[in-house]
């Protein structure tokens, strides 16, 4: 009896293996079915957009140590499909060789979070350099960043000549 059972089991196993091999090979009596894998790859991508500009301080009267701010209307929007870091940088307001000390503060709009100062700190106006936010923004998100500015004239009237001054705020997005 035992050899018969063993033989039956062997036959069933062989039939099963035959069926499996047919499916893999894609050959045999229909219906047959095969799966073909499809692979895709999405590379890191981020988009930076200026939502509102310019940041306009208006007009200084020219008095020594005159200070204006906070001034807003500088908003960036960042969309990214990967975790990214952010670098905010800015310059003093300049007119040729003359400049007005300018401090900037960056803030994430939603959810609200103050990120810090760059170029100069307020209210001391000491240089602080760029503001690096790392980790900055998570993959698959779109965030707005608002920058407000403060500017202060020098202690002497002749520290700044009358005229038009301009500066630039730059937001750089980079993958770690």
């Amino acid at each position: 009896m035992k050899p018969i059972i063993k033989l039956s089991c062997t036959m069933i196993f062989l039939m099963f293996m035959l069926m499996v091999s047919e499916v893999i090979a894609g050959e045999g009596a229909p219906p047959i079915s095969e799966l073909v894998p499809v692979n895709g790859k999405v590379w890191k991508y981020a988009k930076v957009r200026v939502v509102t500009e310019p940041m306009d301080f208006g007009v200084f009267s020219g008095q020594p140590n005159e200070e204006l701010g906070p001034v807003d209307n500088a908003v960036f929007e960042v969309e990214t499909n990967a975790d990214v870091n952010l670098t905010f940088s800015g310059t003093d307001l300049k007119n040729g060789n003359y400049s007005i000390k300018t401090a900037y503060r960056a803030k994430r709009v939603t959810p609200s979070l103050v990120l810090g100062y760059f170029n100069r700190s307020w209210s001391t106006y000491n240089p602080v350099g760029d503001l690096v936010v790392a980790p900055g923004q998570s993959a698959g998100t779109k965030c707005k960043y608002e920058v407000i500015g403060y500017a202060k004239l020098g202690p002497n009237v002749n520290d700044q000549i009358a005229g038009h001054y301009s500066a630039t705020i730059t937001l750089t997005v980079w993958a770690p």
Binding site: P30, I32, L35, V36, P37, V38, K41, V42, Y45, A139
Partner: peptide, 19 residues
Amino acid sequence: ATSPLAGDYQGEITLTVTK
């Protein structure tokens, strides 16, 4: 309309022959 997350993606094609 929104950027897909960076990384590897997988899908498949099914081939079926029926008598």
